[in-house]
């Protein structure tokens, strides 16, 4: 943990300050797992909200100058916000296994984003039933114990819920602005 903390502490602290949000305070030596995941999530959700509101929603929904499409290469379109988030998490996975994250839902358009572990299911149900709250737990996967945090993923723009309500593969079609549509799951291995 110490190695991990020192490497990313500065970045996270800077990000927290830059976004002007009262984030959990990083300590001089070592951080609680929950503090780390809270800070990581702050960066993730801020970037994603900026992309969704200022790029996709503005250009594709409000101004209609370009489409956002799952098949962004073939359609010469913008990457969907959920894809942008996933590509980021895959890039992180190529660089480190000291933490991992994914965007999941109980109502996923892409079935591979449905919960695969019991704790994921429990966490997603908890954040859907308790708006505004996060979920934290521990689980063992592949012989390693993880600290797992689940954060609500809220429909921040029309682009989010309109697309999910209209997609032929969507299991739920009554999302509204502000609804919890899924969750961001962040994991940190607890065994050093």
């Amino acid at each position: 943990m110490t190695r991990f903390s020192t490497k990313i502490k500065a970045t996270l602290a800077a990000a927290a300050v830059a976004t002007g949000v009262s984030a959990p305070q990083a300590m001089a030596e070592g951080m609680e797992f929950q503090t780390v995941t809270d800070l990581l999530h702050l960066v993730m959700s801020s970037d994603r909200t900026v992309y969704t509101r200022m790029i996709v929603n503005r250009l594709a929904v409000q101004e209609g100058v370009i489409k956002a499409s799952e098949h962004f290469v073939d359609d010469k379109a913008l990457v969907l916000p959920a894809q942008m988030f996933r590509f980021g998490s895959e890039l992180v996975a190529e660089s480190t296994d000291e933490f991992s994250y994914s965007l999941l839902s109980l109502w996923p358009i892409n079935k591979q984003n449905a919960p695969t572990t019991d704790l994921e299911k429990e966490g997603l149900e908890y954040i859907a039933d308790n708006p505004g709250e996060n979920f934290y737990g521990e689980e063992e996967l592949g012989g390693v114990t993880y600290f797992t945090a689940v954060y609500p993923d809220v429909a921040v723009a029309e682009a989010c819920y309109a697309c999910h309500n209209d997609h032929k593969d969507s299991p739920r079609t009554d999302f509204q602005a502000g609804d919890v549509m899924g969750g961001v799951v962040i994991r940190i291995p607890m065994d050093s």
Binding site: E90, T116, T117, G142, R187, P189
Partner: peptide
């Protein structure tokens, strides 16, 4: 090939049951 099953999709520990 825009690989449908890239390695990076499977490294996340949530895929442990598939390993």
């Amino acid at each position: 090939a825009d690989d449908s099953h890239p390695l990076k999709k499977f490294t996340n520990p949530r895929m442990a049951s598939y390993w």
